[in-house]
């Protein structure tokens, strides 16, 4: 059976990240550039997933990095750098959505729609089997998920945060995070079923 990578951030990578953070903490100008280059895609992934308004996205990414740099002196390294950045990016996006009065939990009323309701919600899953590129289909289907599902998926799979860390960020119990993750993945699996099966 095919193996998947076991650890999101190997220790040598963690050491390199810690060293880079220490250089930024010491005010090394070159380290700032390296830091931004290294984590821009992570920040962009979270912001772009959460915010649909294109002009706001770049400004929000800048805001995230400015927050990171203004608080980096207090970073103690207890958590992975990517988790810490993920938390700041997620909170910045949540505040932005609140300010703009955009919904974060747009289908959570009465527990949200059951998975059985999802079937009639999207395109025919059979159509997806015609699409060769699973990755493109996946990205498109993620975009169709509610914002909080997009956020938990990005924080868990791309930022490397665990249930507890995501729960602390979103101020919800770890069990709720797990349930959102399961629900989001089950939706995706259902919608991408033909493509996923095709590739196996």
């Amino acid at each position: 059976m095919e193996e998947i990578p076991s650890c999101p951030e190997p220790s040598s990578e963690a050491d390199a990240s810690g060293l880079l953070v220490a250089r930024v903490q010491n005010g090394d100008r070159r380290a700032f550039r390296e830091f931004i280059e290294k984590y821009r895609r992570l920040v962009a992934a979270i912001v772009f997933r959460m915010v649909r308004d294109a002009p706001d996205r770049e400004e929000l990414c800048q805001e995230v990095f400015l927050k990171i740099f203004s608080h980096i002196g207090r970073f103690q390294g207890g958590a992975a750098v990517s988790s810490w950045i993920g938390r700041i990016a997620a909170n910045t996006c949540i505040n932005h959505l609140r300010k703009k009065r955009l919904p974060l939990y747009d289908d959570l009323a009465a527990g949200g729609p059951g998975l059985e309701n999802v079937a009639g919600d999207g395109p025919d899953p059979g159509r997806l089997s015609e699409e060769a590129d699973l990755s493109a289909s996946l990205q498109r289907e993620i975009e169709r998920l509610p914002p909080h599902h997009r956020l938990v998926l990005t924080l868990f799979h791309f930022s490397g945060m665990n249930y507890e860390e995501i729960g602390q960020t979103l101020k919800m119990p770890a069990g709720t995070v797990k349930s959102h993750l399961f629900r989001a993945r089950t939706r995706l699996r259902w919608r991408l079923q033909p493509a996923l099966r095709e590739e196996t």
Binding site: E2, I4, P5, P8, R33, I36, E37, R40, R41, A44, A45, F48, R49, E58, C61, Q62, F65, L66, L134, S135, L138, Q139, I142, L153, H157, F158, R185, L188, R189, L192, Q193, L196, R197, E199, T200
Partner: peptide
């Protein structure tokens, strides 16, 4: 099937910022 889904979710979604972003920041 889930394993493939996980791999897709962990892959870089390809969002990126313009090259001038770093200097502006």
């Amino acid at each position: 099937a889930f394993q493939r889904l996980y791999e897709g979710l962990a892959a870089d979604p390809g969002f990126d910022l313009p090259p001038a972003f770093v200097d502006a920041l």
